[in-house]
């Protein structure tokens, strides 16, 4: 009898604790003031460059970006595009990589861009040896698409406990919340693990197959000396992925301002013309 009452009491207590377990809907992404937010925002090219470093050293172990080629990095608006900028003190033309917003310089065609060439050469891509017809590996050229970490979907699943790491070319367009979602997801791990899955509050269902990719500070040593905290790496790689998904954003917004200005003036003139034509006509 006493045992029965005790069980009933425990059961009742558990009922009210049980509610929290049921909530497995993802938390909305944390808002972050990215430089590219808003109608006039532009990319922070230093962040995009650092983000590319995070992608190359961490993400690219599992995630492809098949729609990007190395040359994209050095095309106008790309993070490693080279510009000739006049040094105001010496009057000399100097090379600048990734033009900061608001500065002007003369674009150097990507085929003459040593930085992009060096980045590409650092990756081995599969090819066919023309002398033997055998499969071989060679350093990438700037025209090559990004090296894929796995030969095919089966290899990717086999290496990842059956989960398929999605291609990241347009990931910020393909997820509700965009770059803020990617950033939140990378920082959303609670540290708990359930079998081969990890608890992540920003992932649908809160269980994700991807092990925490940015588990510790200092995972990447930034070449520009920025301290690589987890937050910094997550923000940078989200900026890079946003650029990768929308490489023409700056050009698009700049043209948009001109088009809107033109249309506003045109509308004003057409309104005046309309008034002039209809003057004296009752309607």
């Amino acid at each position: 009898m006493l045992r029965g009452i005790a069980i009933a009491a425990v059961a009742s207590a558990a009922l009210f604790a049980g509610v929290a377990l049921a909530a497995n809907e993802a938390e909305p992404p944390e808002a972050y003031p990215f430089s590219f937010n808003g109608p006039l925002g532009s990319y922070d090219m230093a962040a995009v460059q650092r983000g590319f470093q995070v992608y190359s050293q961490v993400c690219s172990t599992c995630h492809s970006m098949e729609h990007l080629a190395y040359r994209n990095l050095g095309e106008p608006g790309g993070p490693f595009a080279e510009y000739r900028v006049r040094n105001h003190e010496t009057g000399e033309m100097e090379a600048r990589v990734g033009l900061p917003a608001g500065e002007h310089g003369e674009y150097v065609d990507v085929v003459n861009n040593p930085y992009v060439r060096a980045i590409a050469a650092g990756f081995q891509v599969p090819d066919i040896d023309e002398a033997t017809g055998e499969a071989t590996q060679r350093p990438a050229r700037i025209s090559d698409h990004f090296r894929k970490p796995f030969a095919n979907e089966f290899a990717a699943r086999a290496a990842n406990n059956g989960a398929l790491p999605p291609d990241l070319s347009v990931i910020t367009s393909a997820r509700e919340g965009g770059a803020a979602y990617v950033r939140s997801l990378l920082l959303g791990y609670t540290g708990e693990q359930r079998g081969m899955q990890y608890v992540n509050n920003h992932f649908a269902g809160r269980l994700i197959s991807m092990p925490p990719p940015l588990a510790a500070d200092g995972l990447v040593t930034y070449s520009d000396g920025t301290p690589s905290t987890r937050e910094q790496m997550a923000t940078d790689v989200a900026s890079y992925l946003q650029w990768a998904a929308d490489p023409h954003m700056e050009e698009r917004k700049a043209m948009g301002v001109q088009v809107l200005a033109f249309l506003l003036v045109l509308s004003g003139l057409l309104y005046l013309a309309y008034k002039a034509v209809w003057r004296g006509q009752s309607h």
């Binding site: 069980i7 425990v10 059961a11 558990a14 009922l15 604790a17 049980g18 509610v19 377990l21 049921a22």
Partner: peptide
């Protein structure tokens, strides 16, 4: 929520 409570109670 109701099903979660029922499951938790049954487990206890």
């Amino acid at each position: 929520d109701l099903e979660a409570q029922i499951t938790a109670a049954k487990a206890h």
